[in-house]
Amino acid sequence: MDRSYVEDQVFEKQDFRQKPLPKAEYDNCHFVHCQFDNTDMSEIHFADCRFDHCNLSNAKLLQTAFKNIKFKDCKLVGLLFDTCSEFLFEVDFEHCTLNFSSFSNRKMKKTSWRNCTLQEVDFTGTDLTAAIFLQTTLSGARFENTVLEKTDFRTATLFSINPEINKMKKARFSAGGALLLLDKYELEIEG
């Protein structure tokens, strides 16, 4: 099947719930104030694209390719990034809501989440080596068999991580954040 190729386009205020985004390769495109929620984005390839102020909540992402993609001020609730294509998967998030999403078993070295909300997000088996959670809320996020080596949690909040079931060598925490690593022991620490 020949796939169409779209390059250097700006899509602004498009409602792809009404007319779906065609399956194609989108290179260096910019999506602004677009609605993708509850759509099927399967097998669409994005490379070097930006999504600003878009809603992709509950979109289907089966074999969707995200290669060097920036999401800013987006609503990304309930997305299963673990069903995306693994080839060159690279994403970056700023001021996004990603509640109830899954990154299970993804390789996400050096990924950055800045000022994001990641409530009940699944990072089981994910490689987050040198990732950064800057001013990010991780309430109920699941870290299990996760590689967190050199990961920066210094300004992250509300996380609960069991050091016994995750690889955490040289992970970075604030003094208060380091106490959250003791949650599972139900200790009473006074200070």
Rank of each mutant, 00 (worst) to 15 (best):
M1I: 08
R154D: 01
S104C: 09
K67R: 15
F71T: 09
S57I: 11
F100Q: 10
N55R: 10
L187V: 14
N58G: 12
L118S: 10
I165C: 10
H95I: 05
N28R: 14
F159Y: 15
D37C: 03
S85C: 14
L148M: 03
E7M: 01
F89S: 07
N68I: 00
I165Y: 01
F153G: 03
S174Q: 14
T129P: 00
D183V: 02
C74H: 08
C116R: 03
I189C: 08
F36N: 10
F153N: 07
I44R: 01
T155C: 10
A59I: 05
N68G: 04
L98T: 09
M168N: 02
L128E: 12
D27L: 02
A156V: 01
R106H: 12
E190T: 13
S112D: 12
H30D: 12
D40A: 13
G78I: 11
E164N: 06
E190N: 14
M108Q: 03
L79R: 05
I161T: 08
I189G: 05
N68P: 04
F51C: 00
F11W: 13
A171F: 00
S112A: 15
Y26M: 05
K67I: 12
N38M: 09
K60F: 08
S104E: 13
P22G: 09
N58L: 12
S139A: 14
M108E: 03
S85A: 10
D48C: 11
S85D: 15
E186R: 13
H45Y: 06
T157E: 13
F143L: 04
Q35T: 01
S42F: 09
I161L: 00
Q14N: 12
E94F: 03
K170C: 02
D15K: 08
N28M: 11
F11S: 08
D92Y: 06
N166I: 08
K23S: 07
T111W: 10
L158D: 15
F36E: 05
L21W: 03
T39A: 10
L148V: 08
T155P: 07
F87N: 15
V10K: 01
R106A: 12
S102P: 03
Q63T: 04
M168S: 00
C96R: 02
C84R: 00
T117R: 00
L179P: 04
L128H: 06
F71N: 10
R50P: 00
F89I: 14
R142V: 09
Q35N: 00
S101Q: 07
F16R: 01
D27R: 02
D92K: 06
A131I: 13
E25N: 08
D82P: 02
L80P: 03
F51R: 02
K170S: 11
L98V: 01
R3M: 09
F66I: 08
A65V: 06
E94T: 14
V91F: 04
D82Y: 14
L88T: 14
A130E: 12
T146L: 05
D52I: 08
L134K: 13
C34P: 07
C34T: 13
I44N: 00
K70N: 04
E149F: 00
D122N: 15
C49T: 03
D2G: 03
T124M: 12
N115R: 13
T136R: 07
I189S: 07
T155Q: 06
M168E: 00
W113F: 15
I189P: 02
F103R: 04
Y5T: 12
F87S: 10
N162V: 08
A156R: 02
D152R: 00
Q63H: 11
G125M: 11
